Amino acid sequence: MMKASRWLLVFGLLFSAAFHTYGQSTDLEGWTTILGGAHELEAFPTQQVEIDKEFLHVRSGAGVLVPQPSPNGAIRARFHFLTGTTFPQLRIRRSADGGTDEAAYYNLIMFIRDGQSELKKFDIMKIIPKQQGKVIGTVHLPQSLRIGDQMDIEFSAVGNRLQISVDGKPSLEIQDDAIPTSGYWGPAAGNAWFSNIQVRSLTLDGKPTSAVASALQVMVAKYPKLAELHAAYEVVRQRNVEVPYQEGVKALNAHYQAALDRSLAEATQASKLDDALAIRDEKKRVEENKPIPSAAALGVTVLKSLQATYRSSLQRLAEARDQAEISTLMTYDRTLETALNERTQAADLEGALLVKQMRVLLQSGIEKMGRNAIYRFEQTK
């Protein structure tokens, strides 16, 4: 196993190279442009996608999809309503292990049929294998979209929250638990034109992850074997890191809610209106998954005590998550080290370089988790 000191020594090596691969780039907000050049389309059949002037012309409903590194993320694109458009779509969290009829995913879809010249709304669908696709949300446009118009659409999935923005304005937010994992994302269509397709990974609170994590998604899209290795890593990460942490937070919140219920009952029985109102507001904050306020912002003694216990328990969950994360990343690094040696020995220097860049990204990610987390992990070995 690679020692923590070795991880710290190699942080930053080849770091700048990871942010510009095959002409693609990641901006300061974590957005990475995808499918913007002909070289990126070589993995797809020519009858499925092409660069048509400045547009990405997508045909055949299978989708032009690239790996989605994390289940929490957003995809956005500019849709151009041209003559001949049929069924433009953006897909997210498409399962990586299923064929067209077996995959699960969320699908933003415009039911534009051949010859249709006006669009008033579009839908979000939940696609589950062996089930009928189900519309779970509808966005009604403030004004109809017509032939020749264009529209910027952003589709995000964070935890069980699905959100849609149109032309930069929030338009829909719904909740659905059916498809929690990552896989692939990208555009699909019967026949449609897009531009400015971008993706970015997000944290559970909806904030952009580091530019490092976003650059990673460029590399896994360029080297198929690397994409397979990363998909396998993500399965292990979900099982060993994300799921235990989310289940732990869910159980903690349930216990906290129960404690708040007891305190609320005591405050109302004692006619302590201010305390009761503060506790009620705290219950609402937990239900809406809003950030916990600072201790200094609290004026109710009972809340200070309850939140101190909550913060301590949440910290222990975070520490356990960090230890599991580092362990999973180190195991992944050993897998990548093997792939790096294989690619080098096969004289595939381009593939070897991408694997090497991936290793640097992982090492940088561990550094950002902090020396304290690394120390805790080393103490458990």
Results as ranks from 00 to 15, higher is better:
H230K: 04
S364C: 11
Y332T: 02
S182I: 00
F19R: 07
Y375I: 06
I174D: 07
K53D: 13
A43S: 11
A352L: 05
V58Y: 00
L108R: 00
D123N: 13
A103E: 06
A251Q: 11
A276W: 01
A352G: 04
G37F: 02
I174T: 08
D97C: 05
T268R: 12
G351Q: 00
I92Y: 05
A77N: 04
G190I: 07
S327W: 09
L260E: 00
S156M: 02
D261I: 03
I197N: 01
L41E: 01
L141S: 03
T209E: 13
A373D: 02
Q217D: 10
T26N: 01
T328E: 03
Q363P: 01
D322L: 03
I292Y: 09
T33D: 09
A297Y: 04
E266Q: 14
L273Q: 08
L35P: 00
I51H: 02
F81I: 04
P142R: 07
F377M: 10
S271N: 15
Q345T: 09
K120Y: 10
R321F: 03
G98E: 07
L172Q: 07
H39F: 11
F377T: 09
A96R: 01
W7H: 12
Q175H: 15
A254W: 04
Y184A: 08
L216R: 15
V302D: 02
N253K: 14
E319Y: 10
E288V: 09
K121V: 04
A74P: 02
A104T: 04
D177K: 12
Y106E: 04
R6S: 14
R93E: 00
R321A: 07
A276E: 01
L336R: 00
Q257K: 15
H20C: 14
I51C: 03
M369H: 11
N107P: 02
G148P: 03
R343G: 02
P244R: 03
A4R: 09
A347M: 09
V166T: 09
D101Y: 08
P170S: 06
L216M: 15
S70D: 11
S312K: 15
M219K: 13
S171L: 05
S313E: 15
I92G: 01
